[in-house]
Design a protein around this nucleic acid. Structure first.
Length: 257
DNA sequence: GGTATTTGACCGAA
DNA sequence: TTCGGTCAAATACC
């Protein structure tokens, strides 16, 4: 299946290399031009037009690549639909109950028809996911028996939120399972929690995406710079750290000064 | 206008 | 390739 991500994974690293290489080449040309211009002050030498054209071409290509990647925020958001890391692990409980409601506030976020099931499965997440980062979710599906209004309810993850509902004043296992005495059929399963390392790669990728996709962080920090860069073909305003490259080029803003 | 739900698209796992 | 889980735009509701 073809992904619609602006930079598919298999081309992401190569594009990064190309961008950096183009920038480095432009930098090198600029440095040469600077030397020529300096020499012209002392003696009339060759015209820098050729180098200038090369510099402009390099930056045009770089900026074009960046622009291709920098889609509008709405478009980026749309293309990234469905991009998620499926929860593996976390505590799970499955109960059979005659009611879907419990003591916690849930918000429905999806519904799917399940193969060989008469009834769709509904997906709920804790209402406090956004404000408190609570990761508890539950899945509700009616039992296959038509005449019995019973529901299979699977709770995944425990509540980390401080639900403001009065019910929370009572002792709770914080899992969202109602302790109302009329204990439904309960199955309990436990798998390992997601580790912090799960986010490491994602974070580094996000950092790069912030640069090439115009993420919030990058836009706020460098948005004006990129705009200036494109309008005046000038990159000296980018306060880049020196970067060593395979081809011997080096990104060092000191050479632009 | 703000919030909740619906629903089709998309992704990862099997 | 299929299917279940999630996202987010569109829509409904208050």
């Amino acid at each position: 299946m073809a992904t619609l991500h602006p930079w598919p994974d298999q081309t992401l690293s190569s594009n990064k290399t190309r961008v950096i290489r183009e920038l480095a080449q432009g930098q090198n040309c600029a440095a040469q031009l600077q030397m020529i211009v300096d020499q012209q002050h002392s003696q009339q030498g060759s015209s820098p037009e050729e180098l200038l054209q090369k510099i402009l071409t390099c930056f045009d290509q770089t900026i074009s690549m960046l622009q291709d990647a920098c889609m509008t925020p709405a478009a980026v958001s749309k293309e990234r639909r469905g991009c998620y890391k499926r929860k593996r692990g976390a505590q799970t409980w499955t109960i059979v109950s005659d009611k879907m409601e419990d003591d916690h506030a849930w918000r429905k976020y999806g519904q799917k028809t399940i193969l060989n099931s008469k009834h769709p499965r509904s997906y709920f997440r804790c209402k406090h996911k956004c404000d408190q980062g609570c990761r508890a979710i539950k899945q509700v599906q009616r039992t296959e028996v038509d005449d019995s209004k019973m529901y299979h309810i699977t709770y995944i993850g425990t509540h980390t939120c401080r639900d403001s509902s009065p019910h929370d004043m009572a002792p709770s296992n914080n899992s969202g399972i109602p302790f109302d005495g009329s204990s439904p059929t309960l199955k309990h399963g436990y798998e390992e929690e997601m580790t912090p390392s799960d986010v490491t790669e994602l974070d580094s990728m996000t950092m790069w995406e912030d640069v090439v996709l115009g993420g919030d962080g990058f836009e706020s920090m460098y948005g004006d710079m990129v705009s200036d860069m494109y309008s005046c073909k000038e990159v000296s305003c980018l306060n880049l750290e020196p970067i060593g490259l395979e081809n011997g080029f080096q990104l060092d803003d000191s050479e632009f000064v």
